[in-house]
């Protein structure tokens, strides 16, 4: 069974930290913490000099999660029954879609909404609604859970 528990305090605290992180990057380096954009410039590193801070941010991202798991645990386990082809399809669509739409949950969601960008608000509503519909189809019509 998939049992998830509502964890409002951890969620709020984690969210505030994410907001602080995005604000720090803008304040110090003048950059938007949009992770899909950062990944995009690392995948095709042109101009090369522009990839250095991005790689550094991504290393930090992994290090931060590692520090949390080291002290508090809770690293997620792999879902045993989840079909690999669906995971691969999901990855392809997330990569292509965020690149085409110029942003993901961090770039449009956290930073774009913070900048009061109408474009980002529209993008956030679209990907949230589409994701909710997709999850419904996968779980309740397709019967794929864990």
């Amino acid at each position: 069974m998939h049992i998830t528990h509502f964890t409002p305090l951890n969620a709020l605290l984690g969210g505030v930290l994410i907001g602080i992180a995005a604000s720090l990057l803008l304040w110090l380096n003048g950059r938007i913490a949009g992770i899909s954009g950062i990944v995009g410039h690392v995948v095709i590193p042109w101009p090369p000099k522009e990839s250095v801070w991005r790689l550094s941010f991504l290393f930090g991202l992994v290090a931060g999660a590692a520090i949390y798991y080291f002290f508090w645990g809770g690293a997620p386990l792999a879902r045993t029954e989840f079909p690999g082809w669906l995971l691969a399809l999901g990855g392809l669509l997330v990569g292509f879609g965020t690149s085409l739409g110029s942003g993901c949950t961090s770039g449009h969601g956290v930073c774009g909404l913070g900048r009061r960008s109408l474009r980002s608000l529209v993008a956030t509503i679209v990907f949230l609604v589409v994701a909710i519909l997709t999850t419904f189809v996968v779980r309740h019509i397709g019967g794929v859970y864990s």
């Binding site: 951890n10 605290l13 984690g14 969210g15 505030v16 930290l17 994410i18 602080i20 992180a21 995005a22 720090l24 990057l25 110090l28 913490a33 550094s56 941010f57 991504l58 290393f59 930090g60 991202l61 992994v62 290090a63 931060g64 999660a65 590692a66 520090i67 949390y68 798991y69 508090w72 809770g74 690293a75 961090s106």
Partner: peptide, 11 residues
């Protein structure tokens, strides 16, 4: 900032 971001995501 990357580190704080990753920590927040995990938390």
């Amino acid at each position: 900032p990357g580190m704080i971001f990753g920590f927040g995501l995990a938390a």
